[in-house]
Design a protein around this nucleic acid. Structure first.
Lengths: 344, 344
DNA sequence: CTGTTAGCGCCTTCAC
DNA sequence: GTGAAGGCGCTAACAG
């Protein structure tokens, strides 16, 4: 039947090739692949097994999923894979997937909305069972569209406006209070909160909490600075001016996330400012090198791995048809105090 | 025809639903989706567009690919997504994919062979057009099996024995010589090369080159240590003994990759050894924090992004049917000297 | 125990 | 211009 009989086929073998090679029907081969529940005679099983090996046959998941409507695939959309935070979350999602017998496909949107949209549609059109999303921003028409397509979805870290969806994230209020309290307790009197543009709720929530907390201690100075992550000059200026504005105060800086902490640390290095002795330094997100940089940098560690696991677990219940109201699961962070915020 | 007429359908709309909603045939809808080359009357286009919007119809890529046999999908299998090296490579692959109109699916094998096998089969069974692989080890039956399935493939960084395949990697000989020469020029007299178990050719090549280079300068001491990445105690011992063995020499350590450099740096911190003044420290792979750790750490930077781009470009030529002999593309590294290897 | 048949959702001749 | 029919590779009744 098949035009070419070459073992190393130039074109993939299909179930029919196997069937004819084993001198049987497609059904039996299909049974061999799936049920196999002793429904086949040993002789037939033997022949089929041989044919499969000979033709190096691999069933087409495409066809299989088309038939079943199920893929056992889960998508993970990450806004910035460069961020260690995201990688740790991914590892949690991954581990949970394996436990659930799901396969994870990762997509990096590189913080670009159209990439996010592209991947969302792609995963949806391939009929993945569900998606875990670390969204790029707060207002995403693409995401809410998909909701109507009733594709199970869970958000990580960042919420999306006007979109009812389970969210797994940090308890930002608690975490920000912990960090602010810590700085004040250590004797810092002027605090600068540095953030990237508050295009996502996480940054906004942290800033807001910081300001609220500082209002309760009006004897201390609270300042804020917003800066694009790539704007190194602006960052230098921001730091320099903050420092010169308060010559007689114990000063400290608080960075809204790990990516920014890296930039701020670099800026201090450039400017010859030594974190610890000269100025307090702290930031959200734990960093592998936090203990290695000078006297060490104080961080607020998120239980990223657990958050990834929780996100997937939640997604699975949705996939299984759970329709209870959406929840907002908040994890507690852990303050890791290091030399950069040692007491005055 | 359809049982339920609800706009927000509980089940995905198919091309037939659209067709009947637009009071036309599947063919026209299909044409609308693809060709659309003015083959349709404006009225029909109008109706179809409306029906698609109404039903929130999204074509099934599953069915589409089943038909066409092409997916425009490319897989990237990463051994350890935790490694910044891998992430950078990924970004290169990603950028090149976008330029080629391909979509990238990333899979992390977590350094586990069975995961690698799983993903390899998965991607293959979904008929991706090609795969870029950062293999877990050197001997992988799974990979060579796939070769016969003539799925285009390119290896990154690590080769696989007995498997003729394009490889993109670092010029390890040149890089190792650069680094060794640098250390000797800076006045170090006793060098310790620390490696993870040489289960992949990269590590082996670097070690071999180091030893060969050192044979040319027999007046200097060359040592090697092999250690599991998680064995912190063993690492402490290794360092301590190396140091006490050569009390009167200028000593330096060379780490086979960035992951190890991190561990070694931590170990030194634990032991109270200060890189720079006390001992030289250098490692393959650039690290974002290299300049921030004490006096800075000397690294050998790989053009990771470019390597990712090159890998994908190569893969594309293979996908397009190029059958010339496999090539081994080696990129040159760049030595970034910092305080940790300042001259004696 | 085993093979035949009818689709899954889509694209593509081939007629009308 | 438009639609009907067949088939991509596979599974799941339904017969034998």
């Amino acid at each position: 039947m098949s035009k070419k009989q070459e073992p190393a086929a130039a074109v993939r073998a299909t179930i029919r090739d196997v069937a004819s090679a084993a001198k049987t029907g497609k059904t039996s081969v299909s049974r061999y692949l799936n049920g196999e529940k002793d429904l086949l005679s040993d002789a037939l099983k033997e022949r089929i097994g041989r044919a499969i090996a000979l033709l190096d046959y691999q069933p087409s998941q495409m066809a299989r999923s088309l038939k079943s409507g199920q893929t056992r695939l889960v998508g993970l959309i990450i806004a910035d894979i460069t961020n260690p935070y995201s990688v740790e979350v991914m590892r949690g999602v991954e581990a949970a997937c394996r436990q659930e017998g799901l396969t994870l496909l990762v997509c990096n949107t590189n913080n670009e909305l159209d990439q996010e949209k592209h991947y969302l549609q792609l995963l949806s059109s391939y009929r993945v069972d569900g998606i875990v999303v670390n969204a790029v921003g707060m207002r995403e028409a693409a995401i809410s569209t998909l909701q109507q397509a009733n594709l199970p979805m869970v958000l990580i870290d960042r919420k999306v406006a006007d979109f009812a969806c389970d969210v797994i994230g940090l308890n930002n209020v608690e975490a920000t209070q912990m960090m602010t309290n810590h700085l004040l307790q250590q004797g810092f009197e002027a605090l600068l909160f540095i953030s990237e543009p508050a295009t996502i709720n996480t940054r906004f929530d942290r800033l807001r909490t910081f300001l609220q907390r500082m209002q309760q201690s009006p004897q201390y100075i609270a300042e804020q600075g917003e800066i694009e992550i790539s704007n190194t000059e602006g960052l230098d200026t921001l730091l320099r001016e903050f420092i010169s504005r308060h010559p007689d105060k114990h000063k400290a800086v608080m960075c809204v996330n790990g990516t920014l902490t890296l930039q701020v640390t670099r800026a201090m290095r450039r400017l010859g400012i030594v974190w610890g002795p000269d100025i307090g330094l702290s930031g959200f997100d734990e960093l592998v090198w936090a203990e290695l940089a000078g006297v060490g940098i104080t961080t607020l560690k998120q239980p990223t791995y657990d958050m990834g696991v929780a996100a997937l677990k939640r997604l699975v219940t949705r996939i299984q048809g759970n329709t209870e109201p959406v929840t907002d699961l908040e994890f507690s962070g852990e303050l890791i105090a290091r030399g950069s915020t040692a007491a005055r």
